[in-house]
Design a protein around this nucleic acid. Structure first.
Lengths: 231, 231
DNA sequence: CGTGAGGTTGATCGCTTTCAACGGAGGTGG
DNA sequence: CCACCTCCGTTGAAAGCGATCAACCTCACG
């Protein structure tokens, strides 16, 4: 099984299914193709649009004044970005691969959400799902060691492939070591060293720097330090 | 100006105003008084109810199997907890002070949200506001030093008092050093040492261990490392 | 008055960062 | 076609920050 991560949707299926954004005028929607390493919007920009990723991978991040960067999330096809309450975006976004993106004016989306309860419900569903994912990320950032962080990260990517039953999985990392480091609150050197440790332990293979082969999902779980689950 | 943090709502006003949960039958609502250090619900529990904090302070946290704890958020009056997508809670909750809490069945709230667009809109507003707050927390956990974390934390508490114009603020910490440490991804000793450093620097006063006097909000901001804001 | 929880401070340890060197892949221009 | 450069990744050595281990203090409570 080989799948490029950029082509894989979340196991949680997309919110806007076969006929997305229906009842929102086609003239208000716009699908754009953008190259890798393009900026979709930046922190402080007017939050005029909400975006759905149709294809590709996007990193959402915040910067401190001295250049330190924290990646908030990596977004994959089916994900929504830019859904905020106030009128400015609070983070910046960068495509990590060429991407196809649909955008829709936020005002129109919000109005439609009020008029169509099921759309509003889906937006709420998206937001609460996002909240749950962020809680995992908190535990990782605040309480896990470097090795556990990297193992958890790979495990999350492997699971997103839907191959939970599979004992092994192969996928490409669309992001650099620096991107991973800024997501996990580490340095790129530490990420590299942790990957090497996992490789030496026989848990993963790295045929190329960007290609990860998870040799034992259960073994990887041991390194990721399972969450409590009440026991 | 002296205000106990537990009595202060967010600057972002409460979602359910003077007549909250209206059109939801009174028989379905229940207001409870609980003591300090009570459990409202735990990770893995059925997500039967959603709770609004009317009074008091609540900590939401997750545990790793070896006992490491990450506090996801401290919740104050006006905050909503337990709003999840699936049928189980993903985190545990503990009151840090005596609290007054309104609970309502999740199924009824969700149904009402579909029937009343403004209620659905308010729930979505709550969720997106929460998402924005979590993004700040990410930067703090992943990219700030111990001293910056503690300064940012105090600054956030001071600002919640609505006294942004004031140059000083006094408030009580409803949580212990250990709670703060688990929120910031530190140990309680490091939190204590950082508070001492801020006190020695003349930025804050600690007349009692639980009472914080912010002597210079602008000075505290310097320690908190301002976010980029594009400049 | 004894006890335990919460807080502070000191000394030491160790993990992650920092600084640095090196190698390979891809792109560009002579 | 090859020299050169830049970006990305890996690895080594050393430094530093926060964790760990430990002692002591205060205060509330029985």
């Amino acid at each position: 099984m080989y799948v490029h991560a950029a082509q894989v949707a979340r196991t949680q299926p997309v919110y806007f299914d076969a006929n997305p954004w229906n009842e929102i005028p086609q003239t208000q929607q716009q699908i754009r193709l953008v190259g890798a390493h393009s900026n979709i919007f930046s922190e402080g920009d007017d939050a005029e649009f909400v975006y759905e990723i149709l294809d590709g991978v996007v990193a959402c991040y915040r910067l401190l004044s001295d250049g330190r960067r924290q990646v908030i999330s990596f977004c994959f096809p089916g994900d929504l970005i830019g859904l905020v309450q106030d009128d400015q975006h609070r983070y910046s976004t960068e495509t990590l691969s060429p991407a196809r993106i649909r955008r829709i004016p936020r005002s129109i989306l919000m109005r439609a959400a009020c008029e169509r309860p099921d759309l509003g419900r889906k937006l709420l569903q998206f937001a609460t799902t996002e909240l749950a994912a962020m809680q995992e990320h908190f535990v990782m950032l605040g309480r896990k060691s470097a090795l556990e962080k990297v193992a958890s990260f790979l495990l999350a990517l492997a699971r997103r492939h839907g191959g939970e039953t599979a004992l092994s999985a192969t996928f490409d990392l669309p992001m650099t070591r620096a991107d991973i480091a800024d997501y996990l609150g580490l340095t790129l050197e530490t990420v590299s060293r942790s990957l090497t440790k996992l490789r030496m332990a026989g848990v993963i293979g790295l045929p190329q720097p960007q290609t990860v082969v998870v040799l034992g999902l259960d073994h990887l779980e041991d390194f990721a330090e399972r969450e409590d689950e009440q026991f």
